[in-house]
Amino acid sequence: MLLSPLPMHIPDGFLSVVVSVFFWLISIGGIGFALRKVNQVIGEREVPLMGVLAAAIFAGQMLNFTVTGGTSGHLMGAALATIIVGPWAAILVMTSVVSIQALVFQDGGLLVLGANIFNMGILGVVLSAMVMQFIRKIFQNRKKYLLGGSFIAGWLSIFIASLAAGLELAISGTSPVQIAVPAMAGIHALIGIGEGLITLGAVLFLYINRPDLVTHPNEAKNANSGIVVAGVILTVLLAVLSPLASSHPDGLEWVAETAAFLNFAKESTYQIIPDYLLPGLHNEAVATIFAGLIGAVIVFGVIFVMMNQRKKQLPQRETDFE
């Protein structure tokens, strides 16, 4: 069921609860802000547009091209959505895409959905909007602006989002920072080229066939200095912070330990029983495994019995159904 094979949809269990909750709060704030903006500037026509566009981006993630030796380029779509409907609606579109991937297709977890929405939805869109604003200032020529902007926006949205994902994994203690951040950044610097090229191709196609869709593009809606400032801050923070963190893992370990301190359960057990190890090593461990297994059998048994009871009752239940 790997519909979007970007290795960026973090599954549940890979981020600590503190990190998950933190990114939920940030994403809720971002989505709330986007909703307010969309309600202000966008007409009734855009509701179906956002829905169908989200479905198209989901489907568009299936389109791929071979790069070399079994690897392939794919589309995430944050930059494309931003160019077509502007940043605020694009945040809602990408939030919908990432949410359905998690809710229905288990592509990314539910508890970590806030972090995934932040990486692929909010961060991707804010960065793309920032790039488009900058490039518009540089190129007066519309076509050059659109094409150059779409490639850079596509690449940067993937690259920075992957840095964010790497840092989130590292802060959660899931992957050592010296490995998580450079690995994510390295892979996605390449994947980002695919994203940039597909985005460029798509924008070129739209520019040739329906220039009104990409050239009038809500420039009034896009013109927002706030998003540029946010984009610059996020880029600098992530692009500067992550190499720093991966070369000085102690700093990040400190952050992780502070987070783990809040998440008392995780670390306290580690320190209180340091030799609480794997099965077969201590009799203690064997005993606890047995306890667990017995518990498991009881739970399973109770539910099984309940199930059988229900099966017997089922014919009668249908008659006394409200």
Binding site: T68, L197, I198, G201, F205, R210
Partner: peptide
């Protein structure tokens, strides 16, 4: 590789165009 990427990009653009036109009908 660039050519292949461009073809895929055109496909994505095509898909988006169809979706936008569909959203008008919706």
């Amino acid at each position: 590789m660039i050519w292949r990427a461009q073809v895929t990009g055109y496909m994505a653009g095509n898909l988006l165009l169809r979706s936008i036109e569909r959203s008008d009908r919706v």
